[in-house]
Design a protein around this nucleic acid. Structure first.
Lengths: 354, 354
DNA sequence: TATATTTACGGGTACGTACCCGTAAATATA
DNA sequence: TATATTTACGGGTACGTACCCGTAAATATA
């Protein structure tokens, strides 16, 4: 251990001394409060710039009698959508780390199948005192309504998992969907010899966001760019139960006998895997999204070849940390934070950090 | 913003009040210092356990006049080994975050080709006041000598990138080498039809650590487990220049005409790629390690199919953070922190977080 | 000109912990 | 028993910042 004093820390005390004012006046300038003459303000600001003053966050948070309040607006987890467990865990991990720094999170969960629940939770969180908002803009119109209100109230917000390009967000943290689909196409065609037929399967209720369209565009662009001769057939399944999936797939395989690859544009790949297992068609290669338990089972069995994944846990963690960064440390944060496009196989899955 | 006071924080003051002693005495107990009777000590410890006291790190670091000193012992970067740029960046990122918390890092760089430089730096860092050590145990015997000394001096240490299973380390942060080789085998054989011959290429000067042996074991175990009929040929190249690599590979390809896959057990895959490019053998699949600039070039050209990567930047970051965690927050840290086995292709490489 | 209001500050306490310094009380030594 | 030493504490200040409260001085109003 060595003394700290070799590094002479220049703080408010030093600024006050140089400006020949009190610490309280320096504090007023630092926080843009009133009660300082223009002349004094300028003098202090000059000194701040000159010595490159950076506040001691430790002392600042300690002295502040205020806790910083963040609202978290995300889908609640359900059998249908265990995907959201991971971001929530990341959010909670960040919350724990920031707990002793006086950061408090309040959670507002909505139902993925019910846009009214989203609106209800949005109204609810707006009634509270709020310093920041972390949200998944699952429902487009409803999200725009909420963020417009936040803009008026000057509440900064961060998006995870999905984006709204029009809004004044602090940051988007999530996948680059187009490129992700492109990677999917590469994996599905790697080393394949004959140009088999490919099924692109979208399984989602209509009310959810349209991420899958961008993914499919990326997927198709790969075939076009490489001038591959595969035939691509898209099937949209608007009910998420296994029976509906089976019905649609049976029909598709009947109409297209040479299918050797299936690309599922979201995490519901396990229902396709269930179907293919029953059908006993091991030559059909299957790729889908997300490191869910049910998907990993089929990965281990070799039914699913690859899962593509975008670090949902880290999305949640970084969402909170980005807000904290913006509110406490420094308002310059990266606006587009794309997650890596991770490739998960049965061989590397045990070390995957979701 | 809401008042903090709704959450009644129970600190040393409250403990002192309940135990009917002063704050100073509580502090002595908390830090296992002398000068407290056994009776009082027990009473205080009971209260600490009862209220689940967790010290306020903010206040603790602020009040401490001591900076925490960490030494960092890693190879310096060179043309030969640009690999170490990434861990260093992660280390520096962590250092920046922890700067205002009174954490100071001192760097000791050694030469990968010179074990004496390692010993010299090790002796040097031992002469300083030290609270913790982050190191890469590149040279086995020399590292054991250093860590034994650390054990005596009660200096905790963390390993990154390579491990020494015998030592009393706080934590190892790095790849699971065996499984990583296993993943390499999967990728090299995925969808391959005929059982071609595979070259396993180790390129390293003898003085470096033996990570490649474990990787190769994992690689071979895949073929054995799946009962694949490929012929595996290992070639060891003890000089890292392109000429030596070309000479050895020419000979190997002459002796084994049906080579269609090459697996390089470390980051020197680009020199093999250089050779294969000149040879014009595009049917030979090439897989190797690490997200280096020269490797990515060949990835983009399609000469290298996959790079396997273990997040070196994060290894550095987590190395520092793990030490911080141990020294400041809580002494229970994860002992084996395996990095994910990332698969990098030309399609997903632009979003890879090294 | 006398009084009320606003402006522009400064003093001082608090956040929760670390640790210096001083001192009665207990114990050891002469 | 008298003195020296050790033990077991407590008081109080400091870390760097936030912010309450009070008040001269400046300005506005009657």
């Amino acid at each position: 251990m060595m003394g700290k004093d070799d590094k002479v820390y220049l703080g408010v005390k030093e600024i006050a001394k140089r400006a020949k004012v009190s610490i309280a006046t320096v504090d007023r300038v630092l926080h843009n409060r009133t009660g300082v003459s223009e002349k004094t303000r300028k003098k202090i600001n000059d000194i701040i710039a000159e010595i490159d003053y950076r506040p001691n966050i430790l002392a600042s948070r300690l002295a502040s009698r205020k806790a910083i309040q963040m609202a978290v607006l995300v889908p609640h987890t359900s059998i249908d959508t265990s995907f959201w467990e991971a971001p929530l865990q990341g959010i909670q991990r960040a919350a724990k780390e920031l707990e002793s720094y006086g950061i408090r999170l309040v959670y507002y969960f909505f139902d993925l199948n019910d846009r009214h629940s989203f609106t209800a939770q949005a109204s609810k969180l707006l009634t509270t005192e709020l310093d920041g908002l972390l949200m998944s803009p699952t429902f487009v119109d409803e999200s725009i309504a909420l963020t417009s209100r936040c803009d008026e109230l000057k509440i900064p917000y961060v998006f995870i998992d999905a984006d709204l390009s029009t809004s004044q967000k602090i940051s988007y943290i999530g996948p680059h969907l187009f490129q992700s689909g492109y990677v999917g196409a590469k994996l599905l065609t790697y080393r394949a010899v004959s140009p088999f037929t490919v099924l692109v399967v979208n399984i989602s209720k209509e009310i959810e966001n349209n991420n899958h369209l961008t993914i499919e565009a990326g997927f198709r662009s790969y075939f076009k760019e490489k001038e591959l001769q595969n035939r691509l057939v898209t099937i949209d399944i608007r009910d998420t139960d296994n029976l509906s999936v089976a019905r649609h797939l049976t029909e598709a395989l009947h109409n297209h006998p040479h299918v050797e690859g299936v690309f599922v544009t979201n995490s519901r790949v396990s229902s396709v895997a269930t179907f293919l297992t029953k059908l006993n068609r091991p030559e059909i290669r299957l790729i889908g999204y997300d490191f869910l338990q049910e998907n990993c089972q089929f990965l281990d069995q070799g039914v699913i070849d690859f899962l593509i994944c975008h670090k949902p846990e880290e999305q949640g963690y970084r969402g909170v940390m980005t807000l904290y960064q913006y509110l406490v440390v420094d308002t310059t944060v990266e606006k587009m934070q794309y997650m890596p496009i991770d490739i998960v196989t049965m061989e590397n899955r045990s070390f995957y950090q979701n």
